[in-house]
């Protein structure tokens, strides 16, 4: 079990840390629908029309150090995205794994752990 989890985490870290660099930068399906009906200039600002994105408000935590899958202060995009991905994977594993470990049925005394 331990070996499998470590191997799986390694794959996840590789995907979030390195492969994420090659992800498409196009708007995703939801964002595409939100932008439909508006026109955009070269800086991606709305220039006209009616669309959901016009009513979009800034995220409450837009100034967070990891906002938008980067790390504040690191200008190199590859490093910034990659390291934020690594941090996200470890954080999600810690929070999710910790929560599930606390919720689990305790095995009878004398278990292997």
């Amino acid at each position: 079990m331990k070996k499998f989890v470590i191997a799986g985490l390694f794959v996840a870290l590789l995907l979030a840390g390195v492969v994420s660099h090659f992800a498409s930068g196009s708007p995703d399906g939801l964002d595409h629908a939100a932008r439909e009906g508006c026109t955009f200039n070269a800086d991606d600002e709305i220039t006209g029309g009616t669309c959901m994105a016009q009513r979009e408000q800034e995220h409450q935590l837009a100034d967070s150090p990891f906002a938008d899958y980067g790390i504040k202060g690191i200008d190199n995009e590859f490093l910034s995205t990659g390291l934020s991905g690594v941090a996200g994977v470890l954080l999600t594993f810690a929070i999710g794994g910790g929560l599930f470990w606390l919720l689990r049925r305790r095995s009878p005394a004398g278990g292997t752990h």
């Binding site: 794959v11 995907l15 991905g85 470990w101 095995s107």
Partner: peptide, 22 residues
């Protein structure tokens, strides 16, 4: 249980990673 809990943590971490791959 003792086996599903770590697996579930891994699944969550894996989903986080793959969601970054548009």
């Amino acid at each position: 249980d003792d086996r599903l809990a770590p697996m579930a943590g891994l699944v969550a971490a894996f989903i986080f990673a793959v969601q970054m791959l548009n």
